[in-house]
Lab assay of single mutants.
Amino acid sequence: GYDPNALYCICRQPHNNRFMICCDRCEEWFHGDCVGISEARGRLLERNGEDYICPNCTI
């Protein structure tokens, strides 16, 4: 089920109804503003069928 207190992202904070994006490599969720991806950019990636790779996986 959905846990509203689950911690995500590099900031280890809950979802808090903020835009989030999922890394296509590790499948962890990240707040867009923490990883520099706007909601519009996230939608563009999705539309173009491009993967989002998080900072942890791009090292």
Rank of each mutant, 00 (worst) to 15 (best):
L7W: 08
H31V: 01
N5W: 01
P55Q: 13
I53H: 07
P55C: 07
G36L: 06
R41W: 02
Y2M: 14
C54K: 02
D24F: 07
G49M: 10
N16S: 06
D33G: 09
D3E: 11
C11N: 01
N17A: 09
E39Y: 04
C26K: 00
E28R: 10
I59V: 15
R25M: 09
P14D: 03
E27G: 07
D3M: 15
I53M: 15
E28Q: 05
R43F: 03
E27P: 10
V35W: 02
R18Y: 10
D3A: 01
C34I: 01
P14K: 15
G49T: 08
G36N: 09
E50R: 04
C26W: 02
D3W: 05
V35R: 03
D24E: 11
C23T: 00
I59K: 15
V35C: 07
C23V: 00
E50G: 08
D51I: 06
R47F: 05
A40D: 09
C11H: 00
Y8E: 11
P55T: 13
L45D: 10
Q13I: 07
C9S: 00
R41N: 15
A40M: 10
N56R: 06
D3Q: 10
C26L: 00
C22I: 12
G49W: 02
E50T: 11
N5F: 05
I59S: 10
Y8I: 14
H15P: 06
R47L: 13
M20H: 03
G42S: 08
F30L: 10
C34P: 01
I37M: 05
D51Y: 14
L7V: 09
C11A: 01
H31A: 01
W29M: 14
P55L: 10
C57A: 00
C57T: 02
F30Q: 02
G32W: 12
E28L: 08
M20V: 07
C57R: 01
P55R: 11
P55M: 07
C57W: 00
I21C: 07
T58S: 12
L45Q: 15
E28K: 12
N48D: 05
G1K: 15
Y2R: 15
F30S: 04
L7D: 02
R25V: 12
G1Y: 14
N16I: 07
Y8W: 06
S38Q: 04
I10N: 10
M20E: 03
N5I: 04
G42H: 15
C22P: 11
I37A: 06
C34K: 01
R12Y: 03
R43Y: 08
S38P: 10
N56W: 10
L44C: 09
N5V: 05
P4M: 11
R43I: 13
C23M: 00
G42C: 12
C23R: 01
I37P: 04
W29Q: 15
V35Q: 05
G1P: 07
R25L: 08
T58I: 13
T58K: 13
I10D: 02
E27R: 08
E46L: 07
Y8R: 13
A40E: 15
A6F: 05
L7H: 13
N17K: 11
I59F: 06
C23D: 02
R12N: 07
R41I: 06
Y2P: 13
E46V: 12
C26S: 01
D3K: 13
L44E: 14
I53N: 15
P4H: 08
I10E: 06
E50W: 03
R18N: 05
I37V: 06
E46I: 04
I37K: 14
E46A: 14
C26I: 02
I21H: 03
P14E: 14
P4F: 15
M20D: 02
D3I: 10
R12K: 14
Y52T: 09
R25E: 14
L45W: 06
V35P: 03
E28T: 12
A6G: 03
N16W: 08
C11K: 02
R43E: 14
P4K: 15
I53P: 02
C23G: 00
E39S: 08
N56M: 06
D3H: 13
R41E: 13
H31W: 02
F30K: 03
C57M: 00
L7I: 13
L45A: 03
